[in-house]
Computed example of a mutant assay.
Amino acid sequence: MTVISPTPIPALTVHADPRADVAGYLGRLGLERPARPDVAWLFAAHRAHRERIPYDTLEIHLGRPTTVDPVESIARIVRGGGGYCFHLNGAFGTLLACLGYEVTRHIGDVRGPGPDEDAPGLDINHQVLVVRCEGETWFVDPGLVDAPHEPMPLRAGVSQQGPFTYRLEPWAARAGGWRFVHDVRGVFSSMVFAPEPVSIEAFAAAHRHLSTSPDSGFVRKLTFGRQDERGVDMLRGRVLERLDAAGRTPRILDSQGEWFAVLADVFGLRLPDVDRDARARLWSRVSAAHEQWVAAQTDQVA
Results as ranks from 00 to 15, higher is better:
C98D: 15
S255E: 06
R79N: 09
E241V: 12
G162Y: 01
A48M: 02
T2G: 13
L122H: 13
W283V: 02
D56W: 03
D17K: 08
E117N: 03
D56V: 10
G30A: 05
H209V: 12
P170W: 01
Q160N: 12
S255R: 07
N125V: 04
I60L: 02
D141N: 14
V130E: 08
G121E: 06
I77P: 10
A204L: 11
R105M: 13
L62R: 04
S213D: 08
H15R: 13
G82C: 06
R179C: 15
Y101H: 07
A40D: 14
R52M: 07
V192F: 06
L168M: 08
L168P: 07
R279Q: 14
V3L: 15
L154H: 01
D215Q: 09
A194E: 14
H290Q: 14
T94R: 08
P18Y: 01
D17A: 12
A44W: 05
S213F: 00
V286W: 01
P272C: 01
P148I: 14
F188C: 10
V140K: 07
G83F: 02
A296Y: 05
W41R: 03
D69C: 09
I77E: 04
I53W: 06
Q160F: 11
D38F: 02
D109T: 09
W259G: 05
D265T: 14
W178L: 05
R179G: 13
E102K: 14
P37L: 01
R238H: 06
W283H: 09
I53C: 11
D21A: 08
H207R: 08
A44T: 09
A23I: 10
E134C: 02
A44Y: 00
G176E: 05
Q161R: 07
F43Y: 04
Q127K: 12
A48W: 01
A194N: 12
S5I: 09
G93Q: 00
A205H: 11
L99N: 02
R76S: 07
A280S: 14
G157K: 03
F86G: 00
L12E: 15
E134M: 00
N125C: 10
L144P: 08
S211H: 01
